[in-house]
Design a protein around this nucleic acid. Sequence first.
DNA 1: TACTTCACTGCAAAGGTTTGCACAAAGATC
DNA 2: GATCTTTGTGCAAACCTTTGCAGTGAAGTA
Lengths: 376, 376
Amino acid sequence: MPVTIRDVARASGVHISTVSRTFSAPHLVNPETRVRVLACAEDLGYRPNRAARALITGRTHNIGLIIADIANPFFPPLIKAAESQARHRDYHVFVADTNEDAAAEEELVHALAKQVDGVLLCSPRMSNSLIEQLSREVPLVVVNRQLAGLPCVLMDVGQGARLAIEHLARLGHRQIALLAGPRGSWTSRELRRAAGAAARAAGAELTVLGPNPPTENGGLAQAEQVRRAGVTAVLAYNDLMAIGLLEGLDALGVGVPQEVSVVGVDDITLSRLTRPKLTTVATPTAAAGRTAVDMLLQQDTDFPRTGRGGGAAATVGARRTTAQVMLQTELVIRDSTAPGPYAGREVSGATAAGPGPHRRADPGTSDVVAGDVVAS
Amino acid sequence: MPVTIRDVARASGVHISTVSRTFSAPHLVNPETRVRVLACAEDLGYRPNRAARALITGRTHNIGLIIADIANPFFPPLIKAAESQARHRDYHVFVADTNEDAAAEEELVHALAKQVDGVLLCSPRMSNSLIEQLSREVPLVVVNRQLAGLPCVLMDVGQGARLAIEHLARLGHRQIALLAGPRGSWTSRELRRAAGAAARAAGAELTVLGPNPPTENGGLAQAEQVRRAGVTAVLAYNDLMAIGLLEGLDALGVGVPQEVSVVGVDDITLSRLTRPKLTTVATPTAAAGRTAVDMLLQQDTDFPRTGRGGGAAATVGARRTTAQVMLQTELVIRDSTAPGPYAGREVSGATAAGPGPHRRADPGTSDVVAGDVVAS
DNA sequence: TACTTCACTGCAAAGGTTTGCACAAAGATC
DNA sequence: GATCTTTGTGCAAACCTTTGCAGTGAAGTA
């Protein structure tokens, strides 16, 4: 029932190879023939069978998107942007949800490997060594995690944390808590490192609470701890936790921002809509999705996977591009932060370094994808 | 480089067909041979190539998910549930975003058709006739839209609207506005119909404002109109619009729920987190995703698409199952609704019919999938 | 005219898998 | 001990497409 290249060939009185070329190498066929073939194809509603094509070319024109939790509002904008960018380049996108489970991640990469030209690993929870191993099976781009030798798209949450801590310090907060994220999260480690350094520089004390699940409940559950810790400001791993904390503090009768200031990370849509509106570190999620797809597809055109064309020989020993892109973040100040107990007094320590793009490239790499600069 | 059935055959000293059978029809191969083959396959890390398999069986073990807007918080839970259910049955899922564009929907169905065993159309904006036409190209299940002769998964927003209006009437509201959704939305029409009937029955007056884009801005933009309309309660097409309206009314200095009560539809995560917390009609989004996948896969096993097995003859003229499932909704009362000007007075009109599941089946259909009942 | 070049097209193999059919050996039946 | 089943395996075609190679005829060159 489905119409194949053969039907088009019959209808237009040419050999199937001519039809094939009409689509995959139009310059090789006589213009007159071409229009005739195209007309017939149009008539019959012919669409090339990508599976069959993949079988011989080794390129599926599909990519895989492996996501820790689709329902986490951080990811949909990333998925949307990645899908859009991929389709723009005539790629289709498999999406799979791992429920934050490392084993599921591995299984999915294996399952998808034969069916895609590459995989985007978003905030993976696997071990580094496993990721490296998998990257030998199928081209990988990692989002939100840094791995030597692999292409990564990172958001500079370190910079974000610094901006947040400096903002809090300037407001007169000296006792600050950090609500850590899940174990194994690169972002959480980075946040901790940078927040620690910034607090030290600003003469503030940082208390780390966690690890916590990266959800609303994760924040809610820490409300009591936050009160006990005696801090006047909190930086949360992400907005979801911050919002949970908002709820928890409200239930405890702690006023935000009067008694405690709260800062989130991600700037998900939600954070504009809470009361009080959340001050947060905006991460360029959509740009990350776009960039990651670009890097994957770039890698794919540079070093095709299989195919008969002997391309294999070319890739042997060739080092893949391993550009690492760091996207800039920014602090969005809303209503959940307010002056603290030391307001008005001089901030000790050095002043903040100017913002500006921060980009890092792997040594030995020439190909650096430009990091998008994102408007808030 | 990729390991094929051929490598496994060589390693285990059998013919490739035996290897193939080991995976696709294990009962046909000697247990001893089977374990040997499986061991070799495991050793070599063999994974069947689904594209090659699809080429001959006609079944890709993929499905497509076409979504109006991934970033709309209504959809992620649906996507997540659908993907989980599909993978549970060893199917992979393509996800595509149409940006609420009907033309994109059509193009995507075409593009995906050859690569999937079926497509889930979520809240499509296309014309009915086009959907019917496309359904001849690839099995379709439609979510959030009713079409005769096609399998549909619907949420009983009519029931939800009735519950909402009755709730408002009981609270003493007589002037109610409905913020309509986008043109072409089945849900919006259904809402309007049911809300109109319920209002009439309760002796309230319903003002319809719209159509509006189904976004926060859609609601925000109508705040002024709502105030002018002189209503004391509003039912919005979805939570996003309701939340936008909350913002808009706040900006105008109109108190919610003191001056105006607001009810949304969907019960997205967000609606628990606004101030005031949103009263809303909860739609069983995840159940809809699961059910839709089940229906698609059911259809697919009943009437295989192509394949060599002569199954084609069997399907010729056979009517596909066109079960239509209506999933129950419920009203979740939170803080955005409060007594209105007629509070305490007797509600005119008939009392509410009891809730309870509401299910509809297409005449001539025997196969009705049970509708999940969803806890709030 | 004879030769080369060029543009176009056809031929057939290849890619990884499934599956109807044929075949062999072993067991069951009488 | 001949015949019939049963069980397990191999053979080869088929799915749809791409692509290196060879062949055709026409145009260009000497």
